[in-house]
Design a protein around this nucleic acid. Structure first.
Lengths: 101, 101, 101, 101
DNA sequence: CCCGGCGTTAATGCAC
DNA sequence: GTGCATTAACGCCGGG
């Protein structure tokens, strides 16, 4: 363990931020770390907001009488290459027949 | 199975979209479904863009010498109530001691 | 916070384990906790072993020329009620037609 | 698309299973596929049974007054190398201090 | 008894 | 190609 007083360091860090081009605490580039974390947190908030919006739309779909699971399937199909989808379906049928299903 | 010709229906649907306030195909409120799916797809694109932004920042963190896994831990800790974190840590220590760890 | 010295308690606990029918450390039923954890760990090991076995079989399937993804789909279909599968497929077709897909 | 009648093939396949060392349906090694799927399904059943056992033990832990979440944390810590855990904790503390947390 | 939320787990895509 | 990290699906759990 280091004997640096990090509380004091933290206070001092803020005091010298204009003067020091690369302030460090315990060998850590404080401002860089803080910037990284805060940008990520901001973006995650936006992501969460979008997730909520999407959830709301699924709820709307449900209340409009659509089968939500099927709507999800449809969306995921639309993401894929049609040729790929066709290929997989063909193989699935083949395997089913092989098993007598 | 219905004997409606859905191909024709699909074409007809597009033709009468201005006139018909609630066009349906096979009992499905087409415009409603289309709207739902397109809005979700749009939001998912935005979500994906944000995910990429976040990934870039983690890459930046890594190249700046930070331990990405620890940065993640830090961010997740910041999301939680401090009291909750403290409580869990206290219990964890208690259980560890009980087991002689 | 308790003022019990857990280090001492831990040592004492080991000393009295034969004598005490319900040994506790810091209010924790030590043997109960240890039993719970060890049983879970044992079962998780078995689970992991089975997961490896399954992975091996998928690898075998792949090297035998089967499309692993399709095999997975097939297995998941077999888990579901046929009526349910049929229902979902019917709805999916209906939605596709509604969207002119 | 092939013009083979898979229904007939499936019936025929069962008829010749003793005689034919490598029966195929539509180019698929039927017995091989069936074997793969059935072995996987069997192993998955065992996996599910183990998962249930584990769940029961967590329920037991809960009713014995243990904090289930903390017990999970404890188990996951025990899976990791102690040196690794120590390293991560040290870094986490360092980063926290750098941020004045 | 059903529903939504949460946590876990399997599946996909990405980076090395 | 392998392993890892993310993301979507599933099942359990608590609340209405």
């Amino acid at each position: 363990m280091s004997d640096i007083d990090y509380e004091d360091e933290a206070r001092a860090s803020r005091a010298r931020q204009e003067a020091d081009p690369d302030p460090e605490v315990g060998g850590i580039a404080v401002d860089r770390l803080r910037s990284i974390i805060e940008r990520i947190e901001r973006l995650e908030e936006e992501r969460k907001a979008l997730a909520n919006d999407i959830k709301d739309i699924f709820a709307e779909a449900k209340s409009a009488g659509f089968d939500v699971k099927v709507v999800r399937t449809l969306i995921s199909l639309r993401k894929k290459e049609p040729a790929e989808v066709e290929e997989q379906e063909t193989l699935l049928d083949l395997y089913k027949r092989a098993l007598g299903m």
